[in-house]
């Protein structure tokens, strides 16, 4: 690389970048600080990046909250199941779709079916009725099956598969390998970065979804974590509709900003833990999948 460094310019560049990086973590730090602060300090807005009146009360309280951990469990189950299904379907669909029309005549029909379903949706109410008809309400499958075919990931994978040298496949084919063998022994091992990327996307997608949980789960026990957080933390306006005295009395005690911060922070942890491992793959994964030679 060319070297004609100018110290002033460098300082500005590094300064700006550092500032931007700080802006990106600031909200997370603020939440962390709130979760360790006292309730009074939080309400009166004294908490920034360091806890005020440091204490662990919020976390102690979360530990007692069965609903939170049950929701956490549902989310984990959903992520494992959902990402596994997404993975299998993506690999199985992307491989034939990466073939050209000459090799695989039906290819374009399938491709358009994918695109069509991505663009047109029957809408929430018909989808709900369908799920209800299949008897899937309240079942984890209602969260996993309607999203089983991740069109975006498949397109990414198709583009990546297209870039795999044909010679590899031909060589394997001459050795007598069928399409399944070729997929498993040639394509999958050479696609680790992009497979890691789409897995990361699936995991994040399933971990972050809240809306379907709200619609399809009939009992709060079956909520995934994000639905729980949305209902309990973000959308906590139940009080406006309560006129029953003994209820009001009871609800007074429930509200708690620091407790909410603790819950929000805990629900970020899996992403914070999972992400650095896959991060080194996904840049190359995305690039290889979308920018074609």
């Amino acid at each position: 690389m060319v070297r004609d460094r100018n110290l002033a310019v460098d300082i500005i560049i590094y300064g700006v970048l550092t500032l931007i990086a700080i802006l990106c973590v600031a909200p997370i730090l603020n939440t962390l600080a709130l979760s360790f602060s006292s309730r009074i300090a939080a309400v009166s807005g004294k908490v920034f990046f360091l806890p005020v009146d440091f204490n662990l009360a919020s976390y102690r309280e979360v530990l007692k909250d069965h609903a939170f951990f049950r929701a956490f469990g549902v989310s984990v189950e959903r992520v494992v199941l959902g990402a596994a299904i997404n993975f299998i379907i993506s690999v199985l669909m992307a491989y034939p779709l990466s073939k050209s029309r000459r090799i695989f005549p039906g290819r374009n029909i399938y491709m358009w079916l994918l695109i069509f379903t991505m663009l047109f949706q029957g809408g929430l109410i018909p989808l709900y009725m369908t799920i209800n008809t299949y008897g899937l309400l309240d079942s984890i499958w209602a969260l996993v099956l309607p999203t089983a075919v991740p069109v975006f990931n498949i397109i990414l994978l198709v583009n990546f598969f297209k870039g795999i040298p044909k010679e590899l496949e031909e060589a394997a084919s001459i050795d007598g390998a069928g399409p399944w063998k070729i997929l498993f022994y040639v394509y999958i091992p050479t696609s680790v970065p992009v497979l890691a990327t789409i897995t990361l996307f699936s995991v994040v997608f399933h971990w972050d979804s809240f809306f379907d949980g709200m619609i399809y789960m009939q009992h709060p026990e079956n909520w995934p974590l994000q639905t729980y957080i949305q209902q309990v933390v973000v959308n906590a306006n139940q009080m406006n509709n309560v006129t029953d005295p003994s209820e009001i009395k009871r609800l007074m005690a429930v509200s708690n900003q620091t407790l909410n911060a603790a819950k929000v922070f805990l629900s970020m942890i899996p992403i914070l833990v999972f992400y650095p491992f896959l991060q080194r793959y996904f840049v190359s994964g995305i690039v290889l999948g979308s920018v074609k030679e």
């Binding site: 709900y128 209800n132 709200m214 619609i215 209902q231 509709n241």
Partner: peptide, 24 residues
């Protein structure tokens, strides 16, 4: 036996509307 329940008033309204819409 509970068919469905949810604490938030809006979310409950939704549940009922969906149940009505699906005729179930």
């Amino acid at each position: 036996k509970y068919d469905f329940s949810v604490a938030d008033a809006d979310a409950y309204k939704q549940k009922v509307n969906l149940a009505i819409a699906s005729g179930n």
